[in-house]
């Protein structure tokens, strides 16, 4: 069972421009990712939008594996600020998990 917490999205939006809701999950980003992790970044965005904080915590390795190289963003048909969103999720996790 996934626990959801609606404060996650609110917190992400308070940290900066979190526009993951524009993503329609086409998978272009995943196909182009130089790291080749299948989860990045579509599923991560779904978990963030749902407020599934525990799922994000479980996937920290993938979230911190993103190069922020913007190859995905350059080709995203919806113009999602993918690397910025990932950076905001990192910030949230650093605060919640490490207290940093």
């Amino acid at each position: 069972m996934i626990k959801v917490n609606d404060s996650v999205v609110r917190e992400l939006r308070s940290r900066g421009r979190f526009d993951a809701s524009k993503c329609f999950s086409c998978g272009t980003c995943t196909a182009l990712c130089p790291v080749g992790l299948p989860i990045l970044p579509r599923e991560i965005f779904r978990y963030a939008l749902l407020g599934a904080q525990e799922e994000l915590i479980k996937r920290q390795d993938e979230i911190f594996s993103c190069l922020l190289c913007r190859m995905c963003e350059e080709n995203c048909p919806e113009g999602v600020g993918i690397s910025g969103n990932i950076r905001l999720i990192r910030g949230l996790l650093n605060e919640k998990v490490l207290g940093l």
Binding site: P34, V35, D61, F64, S65, L67, C69, M71, E74
Partner: peptide, 26 residues
């Protein structure tokens, strides 16, 4: 140019092995 392939550098401090794989691909 705008479609350049990353060197892997941004994750070198946390995932050096993954960074090397990206660099090798480039």
């Amino acid at each position: 140019k705008r479609l350049t392939h990353c060197c892997g550098g941004p994750i070198e401090s946390i995932f050096p092995e993954r960074a090397k794989e990206v660099a090798k691909a480039r």
